[in-house]
Design a protein around this nucleic acid. Structure first.
Lengths: 209, 209
DNA sequence: AATTTTTATGATCGTTCGGTCAGAAAAGAC
DNA sequence: GTCTTTTCTGACCGAACGATCATAAAAATT
């Protein structure tokens, strides 16, 4: 008897809870938590509503599980920014990976955006704890790059914010981006990478003197 | 008998519909459309639920009115970017005004973000019509600045996207920004302006050659 | 094949929600 | 002060929603 299923044990549990989470991601990311219904998720998953609730205790439980999984991988690109590398190239690389995530995992980005927009009621602890700590660490790395003269002077925290904002914009505001670009919309991610690389390269290249 | 009240006529209608819209902005921007209830809005407005519906036909009608009012003023900062001015300073000025709006009207920004995140179901026409047109016009201005050599070569559309993304980030993701900044959070808008000015100034200053 | 365990469902419950309505109260017109 | 119009409210309705439960079907175990 699952319910509060620690982790899927049987073959069927793996399959079904996977289907449910996939369907829930699709629905939650499009309509937000309150805007989504269990019936929608059940239909998208190809299961009956009571069967959904056989695998998860509640709507909340499904949502929490998704956020939990998301936070595991969400910060990988930032983690893999290494102090040993070339400063500008490490940051550009971070921008590129983050933009690829916006392109390849827009639903995860929108799920996150929805949660933060509502004031992060379910993940505030993760934000003010582990996330803040990681950002502080990486900001220190950036500070060292600046002191070493391999990066133009700038505010590390706000630099990271700006990278988040600009890359996630292409996932969260995709409808607007596509509508405004019109015919050029299909090249939006390539163009965005070109633009962002240029922007950060010229802004971050160490200034002489 | 109001209902589909074209525009408030009597003194009481002006007062009450104003209260309702103010309350609805507060509630909708925090919980999204589906996440908000008429009871919440009624309580925030200090009115009974049936009394709300005396002034507005439906929950949808309140929401639509808010979006309509929002779109009127939302694009003013972009409109006031003038081709006659100094290119870099015009763009920095636009960034500053947009950031001030994020600081002073965060609820409007979040209302807009919620709508776009859900796929802009109610304002897609405004996005693909008037908004696209305005962006195309201003992009042409930026192109001319580039041709004239007063701005570094860059993609005008994506430049505008990046300004939207970074400034609205400080409204829409404020919880995260504050949590990550910790003690420095109270200076976040000043620091953001300093950072963004520097970023765009060094990236947009025309390169020689 | 028999038995146990897991998986699935139809029916249904209690709440919440958007919205209605008849009529009361207040405001304005004369 | 009377009458008319506007404003407001308590009670209520139907639909949607999250969740439960008794029981049936399917899988796994022996």
């Amino acid at each position: 008897m699952p319910k509060t299923a620690k982790s899927p044990r049987t073959r069927i549990q793996k399959e079904k809870s996977g289907q449910i989470l996939e369907a829930a991601l699709e629905v939650f990311s499009n309509f937000g938590f309150r805007g989504s219904t269990l019936d929608q998720i059940a239909e998208a998953a190809g299961l009956s509503k009571p069967n959904l609730l056989y695998y998860f205790d509640s709507k909340e439980a499904i949502h929490s599980k998704l956020l939990e999984q998301l936070l595991e991988t969400w910060l990988d690109p930032l983690r893999s920014m290494k102090a040993e590398g070339n400063a500008v190239e490490e940051i550009i690389g971070y921008v590129r990976r983050k933009l690829e995530m916006a392109r390849d995992y827009p639903r995860e980005s929108r799920l996150f955006a929805n949660e933060i927009l509502q004031g992060a009621p379910r993940i505030y602890g993760q934000i003010s704890g582990p996330l803040k700590q990681l950002v502080d660490e990486k900001s220190a790395v950036i500070e060292r790059w600046i002191s070493a003269g391999s990066l133009a002077r700038t505010d590390p925290h706000h630099l990271i914010f700006s990278i988040w904002a600009m890359t996630q914009h292409y996932a969260d505001f995709d409808v607007q981006v596509q509508a405004v670009l019109g015919a050029r919309a299909d090249r939006r991610f390539e163009d965005a990478l070109t633009f962002l690389s240029g922007l950060f390269r010229s802004a971050l290249a160490p200034k002489v003197g």
